[in-house]
Design a protein around this nucleic acid. Structure first.
Lengths: 163, 163
DNA sequence: AGAAACTAGTTCAACATTCAACTATCTCTC
DNA sequence: GAGAGATAGTTGAATGTTGAACTAGTTTCT
């Protein structure tokens, strides 16, 4: 152990099992999508969000928030998706600082192939092994953590508040 | 929705809650560690592994496995940690293809500062909101998924088996 | 109206990750 | 013991991510 204030074995085991599982799942999903569409999972999540949005479009900042990402990353991501012809940018009329990312019609056909296998992979590697009960448990736990993160508000973005 | 074979709302909600929670947690942990030691979380995990290992050393391949990573990534990571003076490489006597990564004595003091806040962050953002019962549930779920991944063996590495 | 502060998004450079060769060693089999 | 195939790890180029500095538009306050 690195210090005496380290996690106790119980906590440690949970953290490890948790993160290691996630990492392995993410790797699988990434491979699946890379093979199917040639884009990373994080980029596919953006297309997914857009596909559900009204007008198939979202503000850059909205994408940033919903993907728990950063403005910079989204700028780069949309840049690449744009040059792939999957997305276009549209200037925002209300707020001239803002931009919308809009799904192109082309994307519909080119991604139909991807979403099926991706969904299958999620079902196969995450949902099936858990079963219905486990799936509900997992969702409840995830939501509890998220709630807690949200409740802390700005304290989260300033970790030095802890001391 | 991108296609008719997409996830149903229940499955969708679970997957979203799950991944979004993880991403947010990982971002927090990353910031914490970046501030404390100036290395990414994934690199810190390697140091953590090494600190627990006998002789404070592990084979490259062992690190690859335990971090659910790739050989290339570990090579690069150890390369950086080495040039930071946190790790050294030691040729493996038994198997001349192999190398050990060994924690330097220097690292003990320089990481003592980091592990405390990191542990606190894990406790604060993950374990506390769940409570003891939730923590145990989470571990059980993680292990179930992992078991399933393991059970599939090589089928996992060849996703085209699904069709 | 005009300055200060804030917000949306981009840019650039440093850094991390991936993927596909590639080298070196080991193991198995004939 | 020689050759085929497997395993351990590295390399380098392409790609993705981060963080700080920046531009431009918007709000707020007086």
């Amino acid at each position: 152990m690195l210090t005496e204030s380290w996690l106790d074995p119980e906590e440690f085991a949970t953290f490890r099992a948790f993160t290691s599982t996630i990492c392995r799942l993410f790797v699988l999903f990434d491979q699946e999508l890379q093979a199917a569409v040639g884009i990373p999972r994080t980029y596919f999540e953006i297309l997914w969000l857009l596909s559900e949005a009204p007008e198939r479009s979202l503000r850059m900042s909205e994408i940033t928030d919903r993907t728990a990402s950063t403005p910079s990353r989204i700028t780069h991501a949309i840049g690449r998706l744009e040059s792939d012809g999957l997305v276009t940018r549209m200037h925002c009329a209300d707020d001239h600082r803002g931009w919308f990312a809009v799904l192109t019609p082309a994307v519909q056909s080119s991604l139909g192939n991807a979403s099926g296998p991706y969904a299958a992979s999620i079902r196969h590697h995450l949902l099936e092994p858990l079963g219905i009960a486990g799936t509900q448990e997992l969702r409840a736990l995830g939501e509890r953590i998220l709630e807690h993160l949200g409740a802390e508000g700005d304290a989260v973005s300033k970790p030095d508040k802890e001391h």
